[in-house]
Amino acid sequence: MHAFNLQPKTLTLAERLADMAVDALIDEAGLSPKPALVDRRGNGAHTDLHLGLMHASALSLWPAFKEMAEAAIAFGEVGLPLREAIGQIGRDGEQEMLATTHDVNTHRGAIWALGLLVTGAALEPQSSDASAVALRAARLSLLDDRYAPRPLSHGAQVAQRYGARGAREEAQLGFPAVIQRALPQLKRSRAAGHGEQSARLDALLAIMTQLADTCVLYRAGEQGLHTMQLGAQAVLDAGGSASLAGRRRLHELDQQLIALNASPGGAADLLAACLFIDRIESCDGVIQGAF
């Protein structure tokens, strides 16, 4: 058959959702200039990460996201069987990620957040409102996976030490940092004509203003957390990342966090979650048509 006669493959719902999740991770990684995070300028506060590695990691997770969506379609409802199925898929996906990155933790938190949201979106593609998807993800996260390993992650250890809300609790509450802060800020900045990259940076900053980011707490303690929260608010107060004053504040925050070795990785994971949900809302008809 002549190449020009080939018809494009129709993607399944699971494939479309996996594409959207990976696209969200790649867009988050490339967004610049992010304070103390890997972006197109460099490695931020990290010595073991770079943009190419983040892209490779994101691509390695496509099969896991697809399998989670397929599991949601197969089980058809929130329940322990689905929770344990996606838990195992997530753990297998993490191993594939670590094999790709040579044991560097690039996206462990994102697997948790985006995996739940992909599953929540696949369960009811006709109901793609942000709050509805987040609620289904929250209901899943509240179920106890009997097969999950019990050792505490760095984030969980820090959450216990400082009384902060870790990734698990953020999901169980329905992703308030995304639904109540990031998405509204993203839409406000777009409406103000700030441009897509600036709008996404503002969404990240909105998360950072209040999130008790366990990555920052682990690396820089409460001083790092206060620096992140106050600095992010200062950027928004100065007009956001689209304004000259806001960019100056953003540069100052970047330098302060790098000096403290404080990288807001938790906020970055939630920005990816925000970008995924934003895609779900804007592609409502496309998602339903794939089902």
Rank of each mutant, 00 (worst) to 15 (best):
R150H: 09
E70C: 04
L204M: 12
L211D: 01
L116W: 09
P33D: 04
R41S: 12
A14E: 07
M20V: 08
R181N: 09
L152D: 06
R247Y: 06
A177N: 09
L142P: 00
D144L: 12
F291Q: 12
H107I: 06
S127D: 15
L143T: 05
P264S: 03
G30L: 10
H154A: 15
A206K: 04
N5F: 14
V22G: 11
K9Q: 15
G163Y: 03
H194T: 10
V38P: 01
G42I: 04
T227Q: 12
S153E: 05
A171I: 01
G193V: 06
H55D: 07
Q233K: 15
I207Q: 00
L236G: 01
Q7S: 15
Q288H: 10
A171F: 02
R139G: 01
E67V: 04
F276N: 00
L152A: 13
L53W: 03
A132F: 05
M54D: 00
C215A: 14
A72L: 03
L117G: 12
A238P: 10
A273N: 00
L80T: 10
A177C: 07
F75Y: 14
K34N: 03
V178D: 01
A245Y: 06
Q229D: 09
D144S: 14
S127H: 14
A137F: 05
T119R: 06
T214S: 02
L117Y: 13
L31E: 04
Q172F: 06
V118W: 12
C215G: 01
G90Y: 09
Q126I: 05
H194V: 00
R150P: 02
Q7L: 15
Q197R: 15
S189E: 04
V235Q: 07
A259L: 07
A85S: 13
E28F: 06
L13I: 10
A58V: 07
R136I: 04
D27V: 12
S263N: 03
R219M: 11
S153M: 08
Q210P: 01
A138D: 08
L236K: 00
E169F: 05
A220E: 04
G166L: 02
A164T: 06
E70M: 06
D92Q: 14
N43D: 14
D129F: 14
R83P: 11
K34T: 02
M97G: 11
D144I: 15
N261Q: 11
L53A: 01
F276L: 03
P184D: 09
R40D: 05
I86L: 15
Q157I: 13
G90F: 08
A71D: 12
R168W: 03
A138K: 12
R150K: 14
D92V: 13
P184C: 10
E222C: 06
T227E: 13
A192E: 15
Q223R: 14
H55M: 12
A268K: 00
D213M: 05
L275E: 00
V158D: 00
E196K: 08
G224L: 05
R247G: 09
E252M: 08
